[in-house]
Amino acid sequence: MHKNVVLYGLLFAISITLISCEKSDNQGDQNGDLVLISSGISTDQSFKVDLYAQDTLFEGYNKVFLKITNQEANQVVNEAELKFKPMMDMITMKHSAPFENPAAVANTEGYFEGAVVFIMPSTADMGWSLEVNIKTGDNEGSADITIPVVKSLEEPRKINVISAIDETKYFVSIVEPVKPMVGINTCEFTIHYKESMMSFPPAEDITMEIEPEMPSMDHGSPNNEHPTHTGDGHYIGQLNFTMTGWWRVHITLKKGNEIITDDAFMDITL
């Protein structure tokens, strides 16, 4: 009996140590610290642009954070008109991607927040770059930032859909939930379409329907809400998960009464 007490005591102590170790290991990236992805200097040397993100960039909708420094005044810029131009260089050809330009004012921490939907991952030979055009007062410059890597996710957060109506190519990305949980999740998707190799405007007139399912359990979940358009190609709805595990969200897209697709899906593992 006494032996047991000692043993349990030891086990308890060990587990506490393990737990506390684990916590300190994870703290760095758990609390939303931003990661510096890459930097660039504007052609006239007047601006330095640091590109941050929440994590390594991936194929799909990425929030990006820019810190801009006026090199001459050695000052962080808080107000600027910024324009993005993402570019994929595939050697034989180039194409852009959907993006959202940042607001003209930086957030309280000095970051300009925008977004880019990387529609394909980078490879050893083909990479992404982000051209940022900066305008403050009469000062204007343009920095080209080379993005080291855009990874492809094991569980894709972006799907491509070819419209059954007119073969337009749509890109559906999931923005939220980033950390899906059991219960009610607000879900946010973006839909963009390919107008040309260089133009990917938001699709604002789509009717979107979602239906989560656990494929291996042959059941879904109740009381989900279909996402509706809130502006700039963003669609917000509600996704409910009754337990952890592998879920598949079936997606139907319609334009008016015509079906763009009814067999698309995105997997979410809790």
Partner: peptide, 17 residues
Amino acid sequence: TMYMNQPGYPDEPPMYA
């Protein structure tokens, strides 16, 4: 907690409620 193993597929993440 349910552990699913479909024949011919890798194990799925556990389902917990």
